[in-house]
Amino acid sequence: MSTEEFQYSHLSAQVFTSEIMARSGQDITSCYQCKRCAAGCPVAEQTDMVTPNRLIRMVILGDIEQALTNQLTWKCLFCHTCGTRCPNNIKTGRVADTLKKMALDAGLDPQNPEYKNFHKAFFNHSLRWGKINEIGMMGEYELRNIWDTMKKRKVRKIISHMKARSQFAWEMFRQKRLHLSFHSSKGRDEISRLYKKSAGRKWI
């Protein structure tokens, strides 16, 4: 939540709005606050009243701190209900995604670091092996979580987390969903060359 009261500045609102529009590819200035997006958003009940239309307004007003830290930005499921219903074809899910990327680039600790850890683990695993091996990927995810919690010296939290996780893994194993075979792709060289090319690009 915001610590200082938000002060509107025309210039920073404009700069912020243009950057979000360029990175997300969405013409958010055409939003006329009809709230069709709000009515369909599946997480809107859990976001402290930040509905997709409000997120758009936050960006346009240049309330950078709120835009990067509010609950919708971090809880958005990228389900695209907002986008298919918007009369102006604004895909707010992509705006939320862009805001998350900006926050991570700026080194802001997200409210839910597990979000970041999951996608990083998944992405790294796909770059390293060319294919996802669920056990390995989830292992990296857990290590990242433990590391984050350790930095905050919350040992109890690690223990309860590990308990919940091992139950989850056992459940998956029992349902024959965990497999021990290992897969990779020979195209890893091509993939790592492409990855090098992507360095430093903020948007495409």
């Binding site: 990327k101 992405f123 796909s126 996802i132 792709s185 890893r188 993939i191 492409l194 090319k197 495409i204």
Partner: peptide, 22 residues
């Protein structure tokens, strides 16, 4: 033959270029 991971939703959360390249 020798297909690789498409990056699923995760690639696009981190790297827009790779989300298309994969």
């Amino acid at each position: 033959d020798d297909w690789s991971c498409c990056g699923a939703t995760s690639a696009g959360k981190i790297n827009d270029f790779m989300a298309i390249a994969l």
